[in-house]
Each structure stands twice: as structure tokens, then as C-alpha cells.
Write a protein that binds this DNA or RNA. Sequence first.
DNA 1: TTGAAAGCGCTAACAT
DNA 2: ATGTTAGCGCTTTCAA
Lengths: 371, 371
Amino acid sequence: MSDSTPKPAEAPPKIPRRSSLPTLADVAREAGVSKMAASSALNGGQNSARVSAETRERVMAAAERLRYRPNANARALTYRRTNAIGFVTTLMGREPNAYFLEVFGGVIEGAMATGQTTAVFTLGSWDEAPTRIPALCDGRVDGLVVLAPRLEDDGESWLPEHTPMVSVHASGNWRAGGVNVESDEEAGAYDMVRQMFALGHRRILHVGGPEGFPGADRRIDGYMRAHADAGVTPPRDHVLRTSFTAEGGAQAMQAWLQRHRGRPLPDAVFGGSDAIAIGCMEALAVRGLNVPRDISVVGFDHTLLARTLHMAAVRQPLHEMGRRAVDVLVQLIEASRRDEAYVGPSNIVLLPETVPGRTLAEPRRTPLLID
Amino acid sequence: MSDSTPKPAEAPPKIPRRSSLPTLADVAREAGVSKMAASSALNGGQNSARVSAETRERVMAAAERLRYRPNANARALTYRRTNAIGFVTTLMGREPNAYFLEVFGGVIEGAMATGQTTAVFTLGSWDEAPTRIPALCDGRVDGLVVLAPRLEDDGESWLPEHTPMVSVHASGNWRAGGVNVESDEEAGAYDMVRQMFALGHRRILHVGGPEGFPGADRRIDGYMRAHADAGVTPPRDHVLRTSFTAEGGAQAMQAWLQRHRGRPLPDAVFGGSDAIAIGCMEALAVRGLNVPRDISVVGFDHTLLARTLHMAAVRQPLHEMGRRAVDVLVQLIEASRRDEAYVGPSNIVLLPETVPGRTLAEPRRTPLLID
DNA sequence: TTGAAAGCGCTAACAT
DNA sequence: ATGTTAGCGCTTTCAA
């Protein structure tokens, strides 16, 4: 056809003349049949009447020989479907994030279970979302799972309508009409503190996460409600705020102990995250205090860190949340393809649970003094 | 054109009539120009002579209004390039893996730096590789980073030639001719044990990883070489093997202590991984032993766990390895596109370093007895 | 400055 | 049972 008229040599174009991957045409040529025959031999059911057994055999053999794989992009173009989902997250700093890892595990599991692959897109910060997220809605994935969008912006003005999307732990009113998966952190914190009261603890210090994180606020709310239920009013300086890191926890704890020298040691510390709790334990260890004999310490999230250390903590079902997000996303995608409306809850709330551990025990009979 | 002859209503086909995403044709129609004009208005440089400023303006406005994004699959088809790389890993069990997370962080960083996106493909086990990996070489990614392929199989028989690939921590002769990135674990272990000797430690227990893991073997090799250098022959029962988990470490340590009651406590424990070391510390704590006062404990990898706990450990540059793997992969992809040969090392070896921490100190003067 | 045509690799619909 | 055509959405020739 096009090679009937030999062309003069020309400078190499920017786009390579042909892909290095074998194509259906290659297979067809190799098998001595038309592209169509090859296509239906490869795709048709085992006993489709489309091609003869003999032809199928030849085509299969040729495909095998050439290590042929149907081109995913061409398929996506015709099927209007990539069988891939995107997972969007912000990467805070270079330090990998246990929280992300947990949700990611669930997403991967869900994707595998539904025969999807997962593309990960990381944003340097949430500020990039309005420019980067729309750029991902270009047919490369069938839908998006977005982890922890920020409160201030509901995305209404910049989120493309046409790509199905599920948010995880969206705070506030992210994309009204979209689907969100979250856990009831307030209830989780409440239950943990309630159990600590039941164990006999009274003076419980909360070293919480930073201002501006709705999750941190909700944990404080739960802490306060459990106190209210128990008829206890925690002194104002029993609620601290620091960054969601071990360093943050250690510093906050250390400074607090410093400020309260000579006063009685609290019965327990409720960390706003696992990392904070670990930091608190460090600061306590430096003073020679033993956990849980002298003071109990509990965390929040129960990620890898807490599990490995057998730390008592509120377990957020992060893995399940990732999993659920994918399941719902697939439903959204299906509905969108059929041009149907998605019927199902628009906010899915999972319940945290309180996990016991070696860092939580009954309080001392005689409180220690901070030295 | 095709809508000139109205067709009778028909049953909805399996493939949706048209994509829900706006296309270039939509933009062109909206702007009242041809597809071509729209294309060059959108792609051409700011002052390309291709279209008039007025046309460009109209096209841009239309694109904006429609929230237009060029379809990634169509582009991939014409450019023969997706600007995506794949990251293949085996997921052992449901528990997320700190080792994976570290490398992944580097891969993500490298991908972002080179303007690629990352697709993650997980295998249930390495047995799936011969079927799953070739299936990924279908144009959906430009190349693959494969984490920790197994020793027994060099992949020669089933790995497609046409997709650039970089392995990380491949043991042995995986894909002769391919590029591999690894770290010198033997040297890492050697240096750590050497430093422990320098600190005064003599009786060092090694609780290593399981048989069949080349990495575990190499760490033992380094441990032995450091001993040989110091002129010390460790008793045979000073090298244990267990699974790469905290439970494994705890069990092995506990059992060992049990078996050696009444005998002197070792000066230190060298864990074959961070998790193993943590398990050992647990088992020691149960017996009331203090780290590092009574006995030092060090780990291997220096992942999130070790960093958070300020544990002394051999740091494998996992993040850097992921990063390097992507950089090399991009080179391979470029070379492949230009039909050139890749010039560069086929095995890139990074050096681990020994990181001090709170769990490693000078040994006791007077050894304790195990009770 | 603009438009029309061809082709990337594939599959569904329509011929034969 | 097989081959031909058209079209997915895009960009790059080539022609006006």
C-alpha cells in the first residue's frame, strides 16, 4: 500500500515511525490472515463461530511467537475505558506516610479485586489540586480516589463533572453531590477516653494534632465529650496541640512536663496520632518514667507503627476505607457508563475501634510527682 | 455527515456511543473552526504562525468553557508514549510493607521530577510474574521498575524485550543485559558489626531473616566477615534465622534466651531487619532487660519504624534506589525511542550506612546472666 | 492562515 | 468463515 512508492531518505521525525511493540497487524501478517480474523481469533470465545479452529490456532501461535499484547491505549480509545483508577494524595515532605500507606493498601486490594490497575498521583500540596486534578481527568483513568481534600475548598468551581470521583476523609462539603468515605473520629476518641475512664484514669492529657486539621479537632471533641459524660472538666492545659509527628509529640510532652514540675503526673496521655504518642513515650522515657506502670499512653490510627509496638490506640479502618472507596468508585463508573444515576449513600462513615495494647494499663494508686 | 440520515431507534450498544469527556471536535465546533485549527491553537507555541491570535483566543475560550483536556489515550497512540511508568511489586500478605513504602517514595519522587506518572501493579506472589508482567507491557506504560525479583528465575524466557525495565534489588542474574539497582548489604552488615566491635562489643547475636532470601544471607556474610576481621569466631548458635517480622524476632529471641538460661547475656543483638530488632527488644523487655544499658540492639534497613524509635540500624538507601531506578529507566526509555543503545552501568550498587541511635551503646562491664 | 486526509492500533458493524 | 470499512481522539503531513 503505502510502501509501493519508495520515498527518499528523510531526517528522523520526532515521533518514531512505528511502535516497537508488535501490533495486531504483525500477528495477522505472521499468521497469514486479516487483522479482523486475528482480532476475533484472539478475543472471541473459545468456540466462537467467527473463525475456524485452524485459523485460531495459527493466530494464537503467531501471537505467542511475537509476544503480542493488544495495545492498551488503542483499546482504551475504542472501549472508552482504561480499567485503571487514579489515587490522588498529597505528599507532605519527603517522609513517607504511614497513614497514606494504610489507605493505599486498601485501594490496591480493591483495584485488584475488581480487575483495575492503580495509578498514583501525588500533589506537593493541596494548593496544586485545582490545576493538577483536572489534568488527570483526561481519560487516562476511569475514575479517581482522592485522599483527604482540604476543608476550605469544595472544589465546585474547578472539579470536572465528567470523571467519577470518591473522596476519602473529605472534611466539610467537598464536592457536594459526590461520594465521600470517612470514619467517625469523634466517636473513636470518645470511646477510647471512655474506656480509659472505666479503667480508672482521671487526669488524661491529650496531645493533639495541629490547628487547621479537622481530624485533630474531632478527636478533641470526642475527648471532651467523654469527659463531659464522666462529669469531669479537664483543665485547659490538658489539651495540647502539636504537629502529627513523633518530634512534635516529644517536644510538646517534654515542654509540658517542664512546665508542670512538682505537680502530679497525669494518669495517661492520649496522643492525637500514633507518631505523637510515640514521641510522648520518648519524652517520658527520658525522665525515667515507665509506660504503662507509671503512666499509660495511647495513640490514634493504629497504623503499622502502633501495631508493631503493640501500642493501645484508636484504630481507624483506613484499609477498609480505601477498599470501600474503590468499590464505590467502580459503581460510580458503571453508573456513569450506563448513563444512570448512582444510587447509594453519598457519605459513608465507618466506625473506629479501640484496640488495647501494652501501653495502656490501670493507673497507679499513688500518683507520682513530676520532677 | 453521518447524521444526515436519521436512523431508527436501536438497543443501546455495549460500548457507549460517545465518551462523556469533551473532545477536540467539541472545542472546534464550539469555537467555529476546524479540528486542526483548534489543535494547533492549543498546542502551538504562544506565537506560532499557525493560527491567528483571534482564532487562538476563541479556541482557548471554548476549551476553557468545556473544561477540555486532550485525551491521554489518543495522545499516547500518536506519540507512542504515555509518560507513565509502572512499579511492580509483590504484596506479601495484607500487611503494608515499610520496605516497599521507602522505595515507592523514591519512585514517586523520580516520576514527579521527570514529569511521569506512576502506575502501581501488585502481584500476589512472584509466581504470577511470568503471566502478569508481560501483560503490563502493552503500551500502558513506557517502562517498568520491578522491585525485588526472585533469584531462581532470570525471566529470560518470558520477559518481553520491547519494554524498558529496571529491577531493584534483583538477586542473581535477573534478565541478563537489563539494569539493576541494589545496595551492598554485605558491606552494610560488615560495617555495622565492625563499629560494634569498636565500641567494645564481643558477643553479638545475629537474629537474621529466613533462608531463601539472598538479602538475609548477605547480611550474615557481612556479620561473619566482621568477626573474621576481628579474629573472633562466633559460636554457631549466635546466628539465628526467623521471619522478617517483629513476631519472628520476638519468638526467636525469647526461645534463644530460654535455651541459654544461666549463661551470660550477649553484649548486643544485630537484627536482620528493623522489625526483627523491634521484636527482639520486646522479648528483652519482657525479661526486664534495659536497652541499651544491659544489651544493645540494632536493626537493618532503617525504615520509618527505626527512624521513629531512634533505633541504631544499617540504613539501606531505599529511597535513593527508587529514585535512581526511575532515572535510569527514563534513560532506557529515551534510548529505546531513539533506537540507540543504553550506555551506562548495568548494575548500580549503592552503599548502606551505619546510623547510630539510642539502642546502641557501650557494653556493660560485667555481663549479666540470663535468668 | 486554514482545512482535508491519513494514520496510530484496535474493535464493531457491515459486507462477502 | 473471512475481509472491508468506519471510527475512537489526536497530531502530522500535505494541499489550498
